[in-house]
């Protein structure tokens, strides 16, 4: 496993507020990473720091082994269209498509053209006249067609309908398979992208609260459902992340990696189901970390 980004004790403060708070993590080469967190958790700020659009208050960032600030060698390998990206006022869609190849060495014109067709984007329309969804599509197309060695997608689905979102996920996976690269996808729609992600980094109030392989997170917990009595019995000796009761039935999410626990649940006549990434992450980010550790 090669790392392409290494972040150590990174902090970015705006006034007294820390948008990124003592974050340390690495990004692996040629893997799809999910940068997950609630709105305002610090996702965009973190990506702006990684791409040298913003400057850290403290800590260090290495991209391809070097500080990315004013480093053309490093920056030319990155592509980051922000969710709130501003474009020159009079720019039309075609101006973006015309100029992008000058800045991205791996730019694929045919891929970009296909995507413009598929997203049904009007080339002659001014960017400021585009709908939210069409604007997101511009960002998605530049991100995909750039084939930049490290590509960032910042909430790329905003305003896109279900069909367009699926199109993005499909094209990303297909092109990624043919042209492996490092992808960092920031989103708060976790379940929708959970199948894409190989690695998950969760940020909450500027702090990294989870940084793991997606598979191992999924294996960390499971849900059991059955009559309330049976579920309560089973759950009483184990760590429950979440439970809900409906009539005489209870569903509980239990944190456990052991196969014995699953066997015990089955023996107690409970129904076992895998837990969603989203549910686990909600647990991580809604309860304070201390509370979480104490109940363990």
């Amino acid at each position: 496993m090669t790392e392409v980004i290494r972040v150590s004790s990174l902090t970015r403060k705006f006034g007294k507020q820390a948008a990124v708070d003592n974050a340390s993590f690495t990004i692996e080469k040629d893997a799809i990473h999910g940068l997950l967190g609630r709105n305002g958790a610090g996702k965009t700020t973190l990506m702006q720091l990684l791409t040298a659009q913003d400057f850290p208050t403290a800590g260090s960032i290495e991209v391809f082994g070097a500080n990315p600030v004013e480093n053309a060698k490093v920056l030319s390998q990155l592509c980051f269209i922000k969710e709130s990206q501003r474009y020159p006022d009079e720019f039309k869609v075609r101006h973006v498509l015309e100029s992008a190849p000058w800045f991205f060495a791996n730019w694929s014109e045919s891929f970009a053209n296909d995507l413009v067709e598929e997203f049904d984007l009007p080339r002659e329309k001014k960017l400021k006249k585009l709908s939210r969804g069409q604007l997101s599509a511009v960002g998605v197309i530049v991100g995909l067609a750039s084939r930049a060695p490290i590509t960032f997608f910042d909430e790329p689905y905003l305003g896109l309908d279900a069909v367009a979102r699926q199109l993005f996920y499909d094209r990303l996976l297909a092109d990624y398979a043919e042209n492996p690269r490092t992808v960092i996808l920031s989103t708060h729609l976790i379940d929708e992208v959970s199948n894409l992600l190989e690695r998950v980094i969760v940020i909450d109030h500027g702090r990294i609260v989870l940084d793991e392989q997606a598979e191992s997170i999924r294996g960390r917990a499971f849900s059991v459902s059955g009559t309330s009595g049976a579920v309560d019995d089973f759950a009483s000796t184990r760590k429950v992340l979440y439970s809900s009761r409906l009539g005489g039935l209870t569903t509980a999410t239990v944190e456990s990696t052991s196969a014995d626990d699953r066997k015990a649940a089955a023996a107690a006549g409970l129904e076992i189901s895998p837990v969603s990434l989203q549910q686990l992450i909600i647990q991580k980010t809604s309860s304070s970390e201390r509370e979480f550790e104490h109940s363990a």
Binding site: E70, Q77, L78, F80, I81, R86, P88, F103
Partner: peptide, 20 residues
């Protein structure tokens, strides 16, 4: 005035250094 203030954020998305 116009082209610097509007093109700068966009050039940043294209990962252009401030110097360039």
């Amino acid at each position: 005035v116009q082209s610097i203030s509007m093109t700068f954020p966009f050039a940043q998305a294209y990962s252009v250094t401030r110097r360039d």
